[in-house]
Design a protein around this nucleic acid. Structure first.
Lengths: 329, 329
DNA sequence: CTGTTAGCGCATTCAG
DNA sequence: CTGAATGCGCTAACAG
């Protein structure tokens, strides 16, 4: 670790460290002679400023922490892409970590970020309000994504799940479907809960009977859930899965069972991940990367002292594809 | 930022900062009385150690930098998943950044990590050897993924592209295909180059004629490339795209053109991203997350002083699906 | 315009 | 077993 420091540069250029610091940062006022000598020394020595030390002295790290639950392939990729885009626009780096399951481990993970980031964005749809408030670092700017509402000085972004689920049910009913099975997400997940509740409401409004099977947001559970419905002998003409992954699992299980989609059974999902587009699955579009981008924007605004922002609700839009309409792309 | 420091804890517990430091870290030797007072103060004050300051003093950050080229959805997600897994196993955090296009910007991005990470892993398939060596930070442990070989003290992981491409061509020929179009990746990408070269070699070995169209690794370019071949009136009975994305684009273009797959034209890709599995595309499997994991293992071994590792070559395996075989899943 | 000095928050000798 | 002092690399007053 024989690394060259600002002192080495100063010595070589025969100036003080203050002068070196000046030419590196906002060149306040340095004579051209000094500036040249310093730049010469910097490149001859191959000096690169030590960001850690800089942060300590400035009380500013130029990094923001990102805590996400267990990585869900496409969703994860998209949200990070949006964040990275906005972060690099502001000259910030992203410090990534996944939120461990236990409340205690989650705490530790959060604490590990103290002193390394200026703020953080966290996505924790599975924590209840109490766990959330206990876990959240007190004196740190934080914006929440898809988490339970939190009193406290943090911004938050939510997906309007009720709207999305209503769009789906109404579309299905408009297509003449009467027996709509809902494959629910994890019971402790707030998005899954909201989608389920909105499904029940919409179904009731249409005077239909709800049929709910449990899933866990993973592809396999879509197939498992569908198998259970078939085994039970339940009659149905549509499936509304709480996310695209499960819709895909159900879709494939239907094909395997020789049931034709959409003529016998229609299939819909939620999220509009890339996979859904390529498999032609009707769903509601959540602009995932945009959510990541907005989360960082809110955070930067807060860091710039712009007070706290109001919660944002992102409304998904219906995207009709071939799993609900005969002659669609 | 009225944050509580170790000094506040010391004052409250009526001990010295040294003692506080001792109970926080390896409890060398502290009386139970002191330990209790300190722990009491810590929790009553809600003290969390400042990781930045800690790093400075220890000359160790417990973070590793990850530089990836423009984020390619599924590939990105998978490789980061593998890295995160291995990193958290060792108590490390991941500092993410994408490699900017320009050589100069790449430099800056790299420099921004100085003093924030203990080492880094970088993926830069588009840089030539010279650019790579200029960009690489001199005194920093680094492991390269899918990049051109580099003399110098860094480990590296490569995909055995020649092997993968050969598997594909041999499989296609074994299925009776004689006119195999190759949709190539970006010309400056080392993986694309190796796949193309191996394609040419294998085609020549079978006494066939090569047909090459240019692509850029994105889905759309698969469709564009295919359209060009059709427009040229070239006869062909198989398409070998240099990655799965382009295979998907070509696959969809074929369907749209009313050409049946695989009876008239077979389609193959490279990588085995999740999408390929769900669309039933024949490809070669690159265990992406495993590569991310191995990269970090190599880095940790180097950091632990274990000298430099030899380059690793990961051999992909053929995965036959329905775009090349009539009755396959 | 330039150099000296005092921290940023923490770990760690070195005495006691 | 415990405290006082020193330094990690850098920035920011404060004097010249």
């Amino acid at each position: 670790m024989a690394n060259v420091t600002i002192r080495d540069v100063a010595r070589q250029a025969e100036v003080s460290v203050a002068s070196v610091s000046r030419v590196i940062n906002g060149g306040d006022s340095v004579s051209d002679a000094v500036r040249d000598r310093v730049n010469g020394a910097i490149s001859s020595l191959g000096y690169v400023p030590h960001a850690g030390a800089r942060s300590l002295s400035l009380a500013r790290t130029n990094a923001i922490g990102v805590m996400l639950p267990a990585v869900h392939g496409e969703f994860f990729s998209e949200i990070v892409r949006g964040m990275d885009q906005e972060a690099s626009r502001h000259g910030y780096l992203l410090l990534l970590s996944n939120l461990p399951a236990g409340s205690r481990q989650a705490q530790d993970a959060l604490n590990a970020m103290r002193g390394r980031v200026d703020g953080m964005v966290m996505m924790a749809p599975h924590l209840d309000a109490k766990e959330l408030s206990e876990t959240l670092p007190p004196r740190m700017a934080t914006v929440l994504i898809n988490s339970r509402s939190q009193s406290g000085a943090v911004g938050a972004i939510h997906i309007d799940n009720a709207h999305g689920a209503t769009l789906i049910v109404d579309h299905l009913v408009a297509q003449g479907r009467r027996s709509i099975v809902h494959i629910a997400g994890p019971h402790d997940n707030v998005d899954a809960q909201e989608r389920l509740a909105a499904y029940r409401t919409a179904i009731a409004r249409h005077g239909l009977e709800p049929i709910v099977v449990q899933g866990d947001f993973l592809i396999e559970s879509g197939g498992t859930a569908l198998a259970k419905v078939l085994r039970d002998g339940t009659k149905f003409d549509a499936v509304f899965a709480a996310n695209d992954n499960m819709a895909i699992g159900a879709f494939e299980a239907l094909k395997a069972a020789g049931i034709s989609v959409p003529s016998q059974v229609a299939v819909t999902g939620f999220d509009d991940i890339p996979l859904a587009q390529h498999l032609g699955i009707t769903t509601v579009r959540v602009r995932i990367s945009e959510i990541g981008e907005r989360a960082l924007s809110m955070l930067f605004a807060t860091l710039a002292g712009g007070g706290d922002h109001e919660d944002e609700y992102h409304r998904p839009e219906l995207v009709i594809r071939s799993t609900t309409m005969e002659h669609s792309a």
